[in-house]
Design a binder for these strands. Structure first.
Lengths: 154, 154
DNA sequence: GATATTTGCTTGACGAAGCAAACACTGTCT
DNA sequence: AGACAGTGTTTGCTTCGTCAAGCAAATATC
């Protein structure tokens, strides 16, 4: 922290305090729980599922490594490692980028698409039961906007 | 997943979808951001900060390893390693449990308490700016209850 | 056109966390 | 007392992620 303005240091009131204490559940237990629920024959870890999901939605089912890394909230090296794992399973392949030969595109293979299709039901169920179901009746759109900004300082 | 009832498979409506997509920011970027903000001369990583915090609030500033692990959302082995790290810095010490010699208590040292006091301003500021500030005007108590249940299936 | 810098990605070294097996005591049953 | 099931914690190993350094192609500068 460079400057810590006085305002930032106002102590937490009770509701803020409860929220901050509960935050650990979302940051640490939720991802593990979702991941654990995605069991099955050929289990896709959450990180890999997310990568495949983004690829499946991209035009031509391909994305530049750096864009994919951003979408997956991973560092570039973390993304490389994930794609390597997926590549050895045949779920993704890498092809040089036409416009810029420094770049690579990760491309979803048919097999990758099939894995994704096989995984989404358990992923959807996990996300509903372990996350969404607990927010029933709340303003999800507003919540989404807040989540979207979490981690930033705007 | 053992059973995936049809209800759980209802596809996400747009608001649910936005929320789920934004969830990655809370699960992955928020913790790193908070951690990064807690810079300083003798920086405490978020995990270690959390452990010290729980100890400081416990009667006699001590807790059993397993209770501390639960409070910190860590596995038992993860907790052991965290305490070892803190112990080598002199911030915590381990003493055998009186009532049950199988058990150990992690005890906060004065130095540990001092470290915690030195760290909390930047921790508080980080939590406010990167998290709480984005939830202004929302029902924080309700949110806290929802967060508290995240990862569970009740 | 040759050299310097930047950009995109990969690799090496390493830390943090998990699981499962080992270990250390407790308490019970005979 | 002695074996043994049960509990609390640690250890060995693996996996995943980061950072820092490196390589190769692209872009800028002379």
């Amino acid at each position: 922290m460079s400057g810590t303005p006085a305002e930032a240091l106002r102590p937490l009131d009770p509701d803020e305090e409860s929220l901050v204490r509960a935050l650990g559940r979302v940051m640490y237990v939720l991802p593990r729980a979702i991941d654990a629920d995605m069991a099955g024959e050929r289990k896709l870890p959450l990180t890999e599922y997310t990568a495949l999901m983004h690829l499946s939605e991209a035009p031509d089912r391909r994305m530049r490594m750096s864009d994919l890394a951003t979408a997956c909230h991973l560092s570039l090296s973390g993304m490389t490692r994930t794609i390597v794992r997926l590549e050895t399973q045949g779920l993704v392949k890498r092809v040089r980028c036409e416009e810029d030969a420094r770049g690579w595109n990760a491309v979803l293979t048919d097999e990758g698409f099939a894995s994704l299709e096989a995984s989404w039901p358990s992923h959807l169920a996990a996300v509903r039961r372990r996350f969404l179901d607990h927010f029933q009746g709340m303003d999800l759109a507003a919540l989404a906007r807040a989540f979207e900004r979490a981690g930033t300082t705007d």
